[in-house]
Simulated scan of single mutants.
Amino acid sequence: MELRRSRAIVPVIDFLAEAGSTNDVVVARAAELPDLAVVVTDNQTGGRGRLGRVWVSPPGTAIAVSVLVKPSGLPVPSYGWFPLIAGLAMSRALNPLVPGEVEVKWPNDVLIDGDKVCGILTELLPDLSGLVIGSGVNLTQTRDELPTETSTSLLVAGAQDIDVDAVLSSYLTHLTTLYREFQTAGGDPVTSAIRDEVAEACHTIGRSVRVLLPAGDDLLGTAIGIDEDGRLLVESDAGITAVAAGDVTHLRY
């Protein structure tokens, strides 16, 4: 796959005919690859999401994209913003392609009219020198090929003339722009306006949510914002809880 527009944006793009996990490929090659190097495939056989979930789609119907980020000078705690930055970038890339509403679900999903079209998994490099931002985007799956009733694809959502290079190049353009703004601000989400931009795009804020916390407890309440560390603020009977990690369900009642 030529990916001409995408190759003009980043220093390296390696398109693989098949990969177990593009994140694993990037992690293994991180020492030799530059900042913003990209590995992509339309046939990922061992993809995974948060909490050990498996991500599988018929070959040629989705893309898996992993971007290596080596944010020199940024404090490691600021890395927690990268899933949200990637989600914002992907939402901006997909928004012009479909008639429906494209939004970010905290912390790592992109939705079209409430259904998941993209999942994001970021992983720290073992030496903490950077991280890998992995994204899986459903492109041309039919309704019967989607894994859940709350999943969608660009095709199902009404996109016309779906072009891999157009989707990828738009995502990489938005991602690199947001990354540079964040880096210029020294990883400050307020100075860079990243927090405000993410909050504006975040479908979770203002909704009733159930959060399954890492310890196994359920937190029921209303998502009211995102703090300076990228944590979701949930207001419940117990007060306001800052959630750094958890499985969020949007409640529909």
Rank of each mutant, 00 (worst) to 15 (best):
L111D: 04
L111Y: 03
I112K: 02
D113K: 04
K116S: 10
V117P: 01
V117I: 09
V117N: 00
V117L: 04
G119D: 01
I120Q: 01
T122Q: 02
T122Y: 01
E123Y: 00
E123T: 02
L124I: 07
L124E: 03
P126S: 07
D127E: 10
D127R: 01
D127N: 13
L128W: 03
L131P: 02
L131Y: 05
V132G: 03
I133L: 14
I133Q: 01
G134I: 00
G134F: 01
G134E: 02
S135Y: 01
S135K: 05
V137M: 11
N138A: 12
N138V: 11
N138I: 11
L139K: 06
L139R: 04
Q141P: 00
Q141G: 06
T142F: 09
T142I: 10
D144L: 14
E145A: 15
L146I: 10
T148R: 14
E149R: 11
E149Y: 03
T150Y: 13
S151E: 09
S151G: 13
T152L: 11
S153V: 11
S153N: 11
L154I: 09
L155R: 15
L155V: 05
L155C: 12
V156D: 12
V156F: 13
A159F: 07
Q160M: 12
D161L: 12
V164S: 04
D165E: 07
D165F: 07
A166T: 13
S169G: 06
Y171L: 15
Y171G: 01
T173A: 11
H174Q: 13
H174I: 00
L175I: 04
T176K: 14
T176F: 01
T177E: 14
T177P: 02
L178R: 03
Q183N: 12
T184H: 13
G186H: 10
G187Y: 06
G187W: 05
G187A: 06
P189S: 10
T191N: 09
T191A: 14
S192Q: 08
A193W: 08
I194G: 04
R195Q: 15
D196P: 07
A199W: 07
A199G: 13
A201S: 15
A201P: 07
C202V: 10
C202T: 14
H203N: 14
H203V: 05
T204H: 08
T204M: 09
R207L: 06
V209F: 00
V209G: 00
R210Q: 04
V211S: 05
L212Q: 08
L212P: 07
L213C: 00
L213R: 02
L213F: 03
L213W: 02
